[in-house]
Design a protein around this nucleic acid. Structure first.
Length: 648
RNA sequence: GCUGCUGUAGCUCAGAGGUAGAGCACUCCCUUGGUAAGGGAGAGGUCGAGAGUUCAAUUCUCUCCAGCAGCACCA
């Protein structure tokens, strides 16, 4: 028998017979490790304890203390255990796939009747039974024909399709959890009892297309979450509650920011409070963009189809456009217009007015561009994904040589804005050329290099999204992480070689000849609607003072203080602070509770004492303590706090 | 758009084949109270829309609309 040498993490090696399994190695080290082992890392690959090792290798044995492999195995085994539980309860349900996902797993089933919440409870109970049976997990490699014949015989058409799709050079591996068997690449745990029975939960059922293809059957997907122990599960459930409390749809109603109604799906009715956030943010962006060398423009909402045909939107984007037909008097045909879904074609129209010189470049043309897109009904979500929205859009018309500098400049601009808005860090994703694309490879090379070099020069790393660029050019995407760890893609910068060509934009170069400008599409916030949604959730409604739609409530404690309350409100308003009086016939407790729930950052209470000494008692949101402050001082302090970050 | 679920007062929700209820919010009265709900009274609903079954529909059936979760979409 050939011998192989296995090297352990501490640097020691031992000699074993070729074909030894990690399970045997672990048992050889100690019998307790043999029991605790869950998997191995063999030359960096995640290795099932039963898979033989045939060559010299570095090996380490994993136990439940190793969180990455432990979570992977727990979730993966639970996917199998759930599928088994489902087939034990309903033998005619067909199984498909069940991968591990971020906090758990899912498994897709084909079953005529929908799973109900009660069904989920029954499945969960059965899963716990299976775990308690401590069934051994075993594996073997099957011949392709045998696997196909087996699944045909068992009436599992989805599995047949999966086996057929496995490339010829890859083994077809079967796993048993007790008597229940599934096609799986592994690895898995030693036995079902290694799964913690109190650290998982089935969360929801939803439809999902077979193989993610909307032309194929709709399956039922059951989602579960799983962790190494009960505490981690509890923490996750608490996180979900926290996210629910921050839901901008709920806070939008509670803080009277906006509403939406049936007659205008995907469109927002902004109330005074919400609109104050919107305009404050927009005013701030307008100032920053002016500073950043942009000119601001405004373009039409309703535009004849001819322009959309020229830009290519009519062909590629028509399903997402609101089409407006008008019967013109005496006209032979109806005029067909579309509400603009994007601003770029209109911006090119402005660029095309008059001759442009290379001296005009780069031309940074910004618009708070109101767009309408007919988004699929299922995509709508609060104010985050809507059919009517306003982008903080701009198009930079420049030469190819200027792409890099403009990119670096934009990253600096965007990072300043994000910092001002309370997001200290962000990630950059770089999407390069897709398979189907327009333009020469030489131009793509140049554009991709420019984006990468500029990103590095600005001091940022990027993650590569291979092949995810738009057909007209590569792009950068800027991703924020919020206070509870969720990612939001907001900013974007996209190089476009195609639109200037289609709409015949040109400039006169230093050589006196006509040249094609490059367009950089860029947005910082993305859309005001979505970004405000993110801000609401980021802050759980407690907006930074300068952005808060209601900044100060001046509340009387006794009605004799009312006159002074109004005086204080006027002083604050004159100082640029959003102040309102609350002189209602209510106790101070009641007023404090109501305005705290309304997320008003500062309450100034005024009773007889304050009137006598011209002071106020300050109570700040989230704090229990109060302090008495002289009137002039608090007005000065709040006036300072109300300034936007670019004015501080 | 697809699958499933939901739609009753401003909000959160209960209810039943015989044209509706609670709490909070709202209005009025009493109360002038010192930092997260003082007391009392009152008003408020075409039960998402349309059609069908029935003596009778908000309740049962169908269609549509909207919302929620996920999928697909987000050139």
């Amino acid at each position: 028998m050939a011998q192989i040498s296995l090297t352990f993490p501490d640097g020691n090696s031992r000699s074993y017979e070729a074909g030894i399994t990690p399970a045997a190695v672990a048992a050889d080290i100690s019998s307790s490790l043999g029991k605790k082992a869950i998997s191995a890392d063999v030359n960096g690959a995640h290795w099932d304890l039963q898979w033989p090792i045939e060559t010299d290798a570095r090996i380490s044995i994993n136990t439940m203390k190793d969180d990455v492999p432990a979570l992977e195995l727990i979730r993966h085994d639970l996917a199998h255990i759930m599928a088994r539980a489902v087939q034990e309860i309903w033998p005619d349900v067909k199984v498909t796939i069940g991968p591990v996902i971020e906090r758990g797993w899912y498994y897709d089933f084909d079953r005529a009747e929908p799973f109900t919440p009660e069904d989920l409870g029954a499945i969960e109970t059965r899963m716990k039974e299976i775990i308690n049976r401590r069934d051994p997990v075993t594996t073997e490699v099957w011949d392709r024909d045998r696997a196909i014949a087996y699944y045909r015989a068992n009436n599992e058409p989805y599995k047949v399709e999966l086996v057929e799709a496995i490339p010829g050079d890859q083994p077809i591996r079967m796993y048993w959890h007790g008597h229940w068997q599934d096609l799986c690449r592994g690895p898995h745990l030693q036995h079902t009892g290694q799964v913690p029975a109190d650290a998982f939960k089935l969360m929801s059922v939803a439809g999902a297309y077979w193989r993610g293809d909307s032309d194929r059957p709709m399956l039922q997907r059951i989602y579960g979450v799983a962790f190494r122990n009960r505490d981690d599960l509890k923490k996750y459930l608490t996180f979900l509650e926290e996210a629910e409390k921050r839901d901008h749809r709920r806070l939008g109603r509670e803080m009277e920011l906006f509403h939406m109604q049936e007659e205008a799906p995907g469109q927002i009715f902004w109330h005074p409070n919400g609109w104050r956030i919107y305009t404050t943010l927009q005013d701030y962006m307008r100032r920053r963009q002016y500073e950043g060398g942009y000119v601001e423009v405004n373009t039409p909402q309703v535009v004849d189809r001819r322009l959309w045909e020229a830009s290519g939107h009519w062909e590629k984007y028509q399903d997402h456009m609101f089409i407006v037909e008008v019967d013109e008097e005496h006209a032979r045909e109806k005029t067909v217009n579309a509400l603009k879904p994007m601003n770029c074609p209109c911006h090119v129209q402005i660029f095309n007015q008059g001759l442009k010189s290379y001296r005009d470049l780069p031309l940074r043309m910004a618009e708070f561009g109101s767009c309408n897109r007919y988004e699929p009904s299922g995509a709508l979500h609060g104010i985050m994904r809507v059919r009517g929205f306003t982008q903080d859009d701009a198009h930079i018309f420049c030469s190819e040589d200027q792409i890099e500098n403009e990119t670096e400049r934009f990253i600096a601009f965007l990072s300043q804005v994000y910092r001002d808005l309370g997001f200290e860090t962000f990630r950059i994703k770089f999407s390069d050329r897709p398979d189907i694309r327009a333009g020469d490879d030489a131009v793509w090379d140049k554009a991709e290099d420019a984006l990468k070099t500029a990103t590095e020069a600005a001091g940022y790393d990027y993650e590569l999204n291979p092949g995810e660029g738009a057909f007209y050019g590569p792009k950068l995407e800027f991703v924020l992480t919020d206070a509870i760890g969720r990612d939001w893609q907001c900013g974007t910068l996209q190089v476009d070689f195609v639109m200037p060509e289609r709409l015949d934009a040109t400039y006169i170069g230093a050589d006196g000849a006509k040249h094609r400008p490059v367009m950089l599409h860029r947005a910082t916030l993305g859309s005001f609607e979505r970004f405000i949604g993110i801000l609401i959730e980021q802050h759980a409604g407690k907006m930074p003072f300068w952005l808060a739609p209601r900044q100060v409530v001046v509340a009387s404690i006794v009605s004799d203080a009312d006159a002074f309350v109004y005086e204080v409100v006027d002083m604050l308003k004159d100082a640029g602070v959003l102040a309102e009086a609350d002189t209602r016939n209510e106790k101070i407790n009641y007023k404090v509770r109501e305005h705290s729930l309304g997320k008003v950052p500062v309450i100034l209470a005024i009773g007889a004492r304050e009137v006598a000494e011209r002071s106020v008692t300050v109570r700040r949101l989230g704090e229990k303590k109060t302090e008495v402050v002289a009137l002039d001082r608090i007005v000065a302090e709040l006036a300072e706090a109300a300034k936007a970050p670019d004015k501080v």
